[in-house]
Simulated scan of single mutants.
Amino acid sequence: MLLDQLSTLAHAPRMDVFRLLMRRYPDALPAGEISVVLGFKASTTSVYLAALSGAGLIRQDRAGTSLRYSVDMQGARTMVAQVFDECCNGRPDLCPPGLVDPFKESTPISDAKQNVLFICTGNSARSIFAEAIMRHEAGARFNVCSAGTKPQSELNPFAVEMLDQKGLDIAALRAKNIAEFQGEDAPVMDFVFTVCDQAANEECPAWHGQPISAHWGLPDPVKATGTDAEKRLAFQQTFGAMRNRIIAFSALPLETLTRASLQHKVDEIGRNKETT
């Protein structure tokens, strides 16, 4: 099975599909969206998905009348663990830096103040909500920032209005480019969360320090149409969903959790419909 999996991922376009699904985990994507994001023909995408499914690297689930695809995390972890054990004899000193056995790693997260970065495309609403909410709810435990892959020049006025009405500090908020947090002098992030699908779809350079990352995708309230009251309702819903997720995250006992168990819990927060 290991050779089949490695052979499947050695094909660059199939690897592109796998990496996209990994970035979007725990989301499950329809084949059509995968085709659009990666620029593949529908028939080609189907062939790649079948190969990845056959290798035990992704799973297929039915949602209504459509099929959706997501990473088979157990299969992916088993593959990495087998590479570690069979190729490196379980010795980290023989492997590239950062390669660890996901089943054996058990170091608890430090209880020091953690750095958190929220990413979306425009950095004008969803990630700004996340930055302001977490700073308000758990600023004593986390240093919080947000950024955009293609940031707007100004924050969305409905988002600013919503935060102000909720009594959250807006003085320090501004739209920022992700590049500010990727230079040599940038702070090392402990957590990186994408909060919009488009940002999660994009390739980003590896983060220094190997932060725990997760996708907490939420609908974009900026795209809401209708009256101002209807638009404000969309922002209210996004604000509430983001606050629920951040409260759930902030309640995690970081100092007692291993990295592996913490990763599982932040993925569950993104998957749990009760937090949206």
Rank of each mutant, 00 (worst) to 15 (best):
H264C: 10
V195D: 01
L38F: 07
L94Y: 09
G270R: 00
D4T: 13
A179E: 13
N244D: 12
L52D: 02
D101P: 06
L262F: 10
I246P: 01
R62A: 15
G270K: 04
V37E: 06
P102S: 04
C87H: 11
A12Q: 13
I58R: 01
E202S: 04
V36P: 02
L6N: 04
A50R: 14
R23I: 05
G217V: 03
R135Y: 00
F235L: 03
K273I: 10
L173W: 02
G64W: 06
D111I: 07
P102F: 07
A229F: 09
C120P: 04
N143R: 14
D61A: 11
T121R: 02
L2W: 09
A12G: 05
E154A: 14
E161W: 03
M1T: 14
S66L: 11
Q182V: 06
P26Y: 06
P211W: 05
T78Y: 07
D72E: 13
E154P: 02
A179D: 12
N115W: 02
F129E: 00
D85L: 09
V192A: 00
H11I: 15
P219Q: 09
L21H: 07
P157R: 12
L2T: 13
L262V: 01
R19F: 06
L9I: 10
F191C: 05
A248V: 03
R14L: 14
S124H: 08
G54D: 10
M79R: 08
C196F: 03
R232Q: 15
T149L: 05
R68C: 12
T194R: 06
L9K: 05
N89G: 13
D228W: 08
V37H: 03
P102E: 06
F103H: 12
M22T: 13
A138Q: 04
Q198E: 10
D197T: 09
L3F: 11
S106M: 10
T256N: 13
N272V: 08
A12R: 14
P205T: 09
K273G: 11
S127M: 01
A51N: 14
N123S: 08
V144S: 03
P151T: 05
G75E: 08
I109C: 09
T78S: 13
Q210L: 11
Q152A: 15
I133L: 02
M15G: 10
A234K: 07
T256P: 04
L67M: 12
K231W: 01
I170N: 02
V47S: 12
L21N: 08
G90W: 03
R232N: 11
I34E: 01
P96L: 12
D27I: 00
L52C: 08
A130N: 06
R243E: 15
L3T: 15
L52Q: 02
A251C: 06
D27N: 13
G183N: 08
D197L: 08
R174F: 03
Q82W: 09
A28W: 02
A179S: 14
S146M: 06
L168G: 00
M242N: 00
S127C: 01
I119V: 15
I133S: 00
H136I: 00
I133V: 12
S213Q: 15
P219M: 05
A112Q: 12
V80A: 14
L262P: 00
F235E: 04
S146K: 04
G64P: 05
I170T: 15
A200S: 11
S110W: 07
A147C: 11
C120M: 10
E203V: 15
S35G: 09
P102T: 04
V160G: 01
R245T: 04
G217P: 05
F40L: 11
K150Y: 11
A42P: 12
R19N: 12
D190C: 06
